[in-house]
Write a protein that binds this DNA or RNA. Sequence first.
DNA 1: ACAGATAATATGTGCATACATAATCATATT
DNA 2: AATATGATTATGTATGCACATATTATCTGT
Lengths: 232, 232
Amino acid sequence: MNQDVNSWRGVQAELLRRINEREWVPGSLLPTEAELAGEFGCARTTVNRAMRELAEAGLLDRKRRAGTRVALHPTSRVVLDIPIIRQEVEQRGARWHHALLEQRTEPAPTSVTSRMDLSAGTKMLHVRSLHFADNHPFLLEDRWLNLAALADAETVDFGKVTSNEWLIQNVPYTTGDISFSAISTDADTASLLEAQEGEAVFVVDRLTWNEREPITSVRLTYAPGYRLNTRV
Amino acid sequence: MNQDVNSWRGVQAELLRRINEREWVPGSLLPTEAELAGEFGCARTTVNRAMRELAEAGLLDRKRRAGTRVALHPTSRVVLDIPIIRQEVEQRGARWHHALLEQRTEPAPTSVTSRMDLSAGTKMLHVRSLHFADNHPFLLEDRWLNLAALADAETVDFGKVTSNEWLIQNVPYTTGDISFSAISTDADTASLLEAQEGEAVFVVDRLTWNEREPITSVRLTYAPGYRLNTRV
DNA sequence: ACAGATAATATGTGCATACATAATCATATT
DNA sequence: AATATGATTATGTATGCACATATTATCTGT
């Protein structure tokens, strides 16, 4: 009974079929929930649930009173699961370890303070560490922690706990901006990652904050050849 | 009345608060839906919806009879909206156009055929085109189309319709693998993108197939400086 | 003590109903 | 013609109820 038309999964499957097989072309108006419920012999609630999820997935556009239409530009929505680094390495079947390069309170560069909306020259906790997969450099983590939000951070030894894991354990709910890009390595980064200077590397910049204030800004510079994979 | 405790959003907000403020620590067992419904003075259905979405988001683990627990390893889940290129350019407030560089049926290189699970040397339709934002090169699209799946494709003029838009209009449901990486430009690509040879660029490789067969393999090489942004 | 049957229970889902809300349409007013 | 007003309607959500399903706990016989 898992795919019956009177289950919401069944209804959803049938709606999907009609969308994919162009029975309902992009932009066209669908029957109302009530009509579909009649056709499928189920409750409107069931149709609603099926359609709601398709709308959340971006396949349908719904408006009260105006009805439901097949989305014109189905921007495919990709879900990336961002694991913590240790997991990412171990998932590849490699042994993980990390080395703390630097842990020091110092004035942050303006590139960091401006992004975090703090005044220039604010002293922050700067943590740099290198993560390894099977003893090869995997990525360089360069992090700035906002001491105004994380007073305890100064007493932690990030050689024992990674800053990432410490944050997950100790900081309540956060939101964040993430951006992915490609850069050429500078000499320092290249030597740490066993890369050649100027080689292209994949970079993730992440800015995290809670309800009231910025928490941390981090740049993850992956060793050459790294690929971030996902499936639609 | 949007955040009342007897609306599912209100319930969800309250549950989130308790999770974030560690009233319910990771791994701990939550009260049952019925109990929470009693506490909040709402129907179990309402609590169910609130909790269901938190479970989908990975914050809760739910099992029948066993109850609901706060997830131990909240792998943050990022949603990337991948728009079609034209939209992406226009969203930045730039004028978009594109130029077809090449459209030719030819044997595909093994790097393509192997990924698509086709025999080496299969003839495919090769389409290369350059997308512009305000007359500056934005990205290079290098696409291979499986003619066995897309017989009509050979008759299309991809100078008029982009291959991307043509595929969306003409190919039913597809799934795909996407991978993001950083590479150094070769001489040819660099000149097309007005980049310097060897400069780091952001690359998206995408492989698409339907139920039975591979459809297309495409590499999008962005001009230097491109960033892919999202929010958690 | 152990395996297997049986009961208990928390979540998962469907339904009928009711009312809320936002967009649209039709009508009346200036 | 432009604008305000109210009716209409499709979706959004809450509720009480019923039953399905997966899992755990308990009981039973050997």
